[in-house]
Design a protein around this nucleic acid. Structure first.
Lengths: 249, 249
DNA sequence: CGCGGGGTTGACTTTTGTCAAGAGTTGTGG
DNA sequence: CCACAACTCTTGACAAAAGTCAACCCCGCG
């Protein structure tokens, strides 16, 4: 399972055999984290980078009034905090949304490896650029779409991202977020998310049952989401979405 | 004026005299861009990085329905697209909001310099981390604050950022965005922005006249904004806000 | 002096939030 | 295998926030 992270990195830039061996050597055995538990707490000085092996994690901030905003979702084979190596304290937390396994690498080893292998540095750099592009699109999603399109958009994005790591078949995938968590990610309330999902169901765009999503009408869903897949840097067709990414060779 | 960018970079990591000379050599003479004109168009393959010398630029996306979301504001002495060096096409545009002067550096020269000077690489890396932190906070702002707090928050953030580059005195600064542009940055409509600003005025928190802002009641404004300055990585006190940043030495 | 962009305001609509009750689900322990 | 508790989801009634449309004002500028 650890290899899937390395495989994903290779989609961003070619790695040598030695690169892959080194990464494999540095990666710890995965640690189990309970649902709701933090992997990195807000304000602390992180010492490792983390890679999601299984489960789902998220990056979030909590406001003084208790409101929570989820800033990013991290799926298996994602590194969630590459940028932490250089910060003395982080302005956000990383938490597990479900029971999750995370592998990790100490910052000093990672920084050392980055200096020795420009290929790994390039792949990681591009993978963080990809994360940033998603973050920008989330801002657009929350800022300029109303609830109906917002939920449609995140569902289609998650579908493409899970498909890219082999966790979506056809147009079905596991999506084990509660509606409260979805609301925290979308800047809505849980009640409103529930209503919007009812409407997406009523319009025969999706089926959502037991935390599993099936997209019945992909074109319809993309239309209400005003979805343009360019930001994901991966194709929106076929079972191997990542083949034609547009990052420079 | 070009030197102010280099001075800002030095707040992120120390540079050698040679570093500064090299950066100065690479920087072009500034080019003038009209208000409303794009510096980088969406979808194109960028060839240079750009540094704002005077004026204001922004990073934005346009939706199929015509809505625009401003994703970031770029003030003088900011580089606005360091991350472009590696992308074959960008998913967002960069445009001037007012008459603006931009200097630029060809990507190949920049990449070459980054390889030769790890200090410059570190400073630039941290400066992009700073930009990302601001982007995360914008997501929180739009997702979890209502209009009143949202406007208060962006005003206080802009105040701190302008103060850090010497463009704010006491609690006053030039803020030449139209309310329509402010609305595009905040996920609101211009009409609603106008109403919210009226209220901020009525509550004696700010004065806004002729595109100049004076914060009358900083503590009050921060309270309605639920402002916590940590994400900016700069202190929120005194005329030299950047002295005690929390990036690792 | 008139033009045009930006700002303000009012009346009205739509979207979203709030509160509360009830139904369904999940997980646990006996 | 059942009972129970704790969550989660759904729905309704109502309230608040934000959007829409339109008129008008203000002010800089040719």
């Amino acid at each position: 399972m650890l290899e899937s992270w390395i495989a994903r990195l290779e989609q961003f830039a070619p790695l040598s055999g030695e690169d892959k061996l080194e990464l494999g050597r540095l990666l710890s055995e995965p640690r189990r984290v309970h649902a709701g538990e933090d992997i990195v707490r807000e304000g602390e000085a992180p010492t490792h980078i983390h890679i999601i092996v299984s489960g789902i994690a998220c990056c979030y901030k909590v406001l003084p009034d208790g409101g929570r905003q989820i800033i990013a979702l991290h799926f298996p084979s994602h590194a969630c905090d590459i940028h932490h190596g250089i910060l003395s304290r982080v302005d956000h937390a990383i938490g597990a949304l479900r029971p999750t396994q995370v592998a990790y690498i100490p910052h000093e080893n990672m920084l050392d490896l980055l200096e020795r292998s420009p290929r790994i540095a390039k792949a990681l750099w591009r993978s963080t650029l990809n994360d940033n592009a998603i973050l920008r699109e989330w801002l657009v999603n929350i800022g300029r779409r109303e609830g109906y399109g917002r939920v449609a958009h995140i569902l289609y994005e998650v579908y493409l991202r899970l498909k890219a790591v082999g966790q979506a078949d056809n147009h079905s995938f596991e999506f084990p977020l509660t509606q409260t968590e979805l609301a925290d990610a979308l800047g809505l309330t849980p009640v409103h998310v529930s209503r919007v999902i009812s409407r997406l169901r009523a319009e025969s765009l999706i089926v959502l049952r037991r935390r599993a999503v099936t997209i019945i009408d992909p074109e319809g869903l993309k239309a209400v989401a005003q979805f343009s897949p360019g930001y994901l840097q991966m194709a929106d067709q076929g079972p191997e979405g990542n083949k034609s990414n547009t990052l420079r060779g």
